[in-house]
Design a binder for these strands. Structure first.
Lengths: 148, 148
DNA sequence: GTGCCACCTCAAGCCGACTTGAGGTCAAGA
DNA sequence: TCTTGACCTCAAGTCGGCTTGAGGTGGCAC
């Protein structure tokens, strides 16, 4: 009932219509049908899109989101996957926290160059050794983000 | 002072030589000179590369790193920039923390679908409203990461 | 009934961060 | 001297996540 035009979905989510079509193409969302040529969306798509945006926020790829989200063949969100994702996030968070502390230290550190500061050096070493590994995933790209 | 061949730098940092050349092209690192055709690097480049890797870890772009790193014209790391970056990181961290908590909740939540769970819903709303905005930057891409 | 404009499709382009490949150079060891 | 292989350059390709543009369609207000 009262399905939404793609334009309306765009307005309500802040996502460009091009993105919505792209998501549909990738199977992340589905139209309930067409009205003439026009895609019609169930309002529930709004939550789904919020969820997708949320996942992107965390650095999950669209493919990953597609795997996690409920779909026709797979009607519930897989809790184990969620837990796994949460744990991934935990790791990311601690990496970033360490880094932030390193930055704060560097900003406050009295050594004339940071390379002379032992704290910073040990920090660098851990970075170099891969203890702080770069995050694996490809995050959001937002060139012409128009959030209205 | 026993300058290093690019291959040696690669071995010691774990970065592919192609990446090192790319970084040089972008002005992130500089060779002290050439031995024949071959670039020679001051061992100090190793710390610099660790620093770059570190920054990438945090999601900073190469351009940003170039701005933050000491260079010929700008010999010290700008502490204010570091502080600013640390604050950016703080924001990212709290976004991710909120998200992680949301995920944990969703995994544990007894509601049959997450859309019925009020906690999750309010969470979604905040995501949708942009309170949890996607991180602005383009993070690492590591297709054939060969850490030896 | 007709005009508008929101929608449509499909192909191509863009960005960042690299990698890959073809074809060339040259320092050093045998 | 000759060979080897590590280096070199430059152009093009890749990947994810979209955007852009050209050219087309059709529901609805007038």
């Amino acid at each position: 009932m009262t399905d939404l035009d793609i334009g309306e979905v765009a307005r309500r989510t802040g996502l460009p219509v091009s993105t919505l079509r792209y998501y549909e193409e990738k199977g992340l969302i589905a139209a309930t049908g067409r009205h003439g040529l026009r895609r019609q969306f169930d309002p529930a798509v709004l939550e789904r899109l919020a969820l997708i945006t949320l996942g992107r926020t965390a650095g999950f790829s669209l493919d990953e989101m597609a795997r996690v989200l409920p779909s026709a063949g797979h009607p519930h969100i897989d809790r184990r996957m969620l837990t796994a994702k949460a744990e991934e996030l935990d790791e990311t968070i601690s990496r970033l926290t360490a880094l932030r502390d390193g930055l704060h230290h560097a900003a406050a550190c009295p050594a004339s160059t940071h390379l002379e500061c032992p704290t910073f050096q040990s920090f660098l070493r851990s970075a170099a050794s891969g203890t702080l590994e770069p995050p694996p995933r490809t995050p959001p790209h937002r060139p012409g983000r128009r959030v209205a």
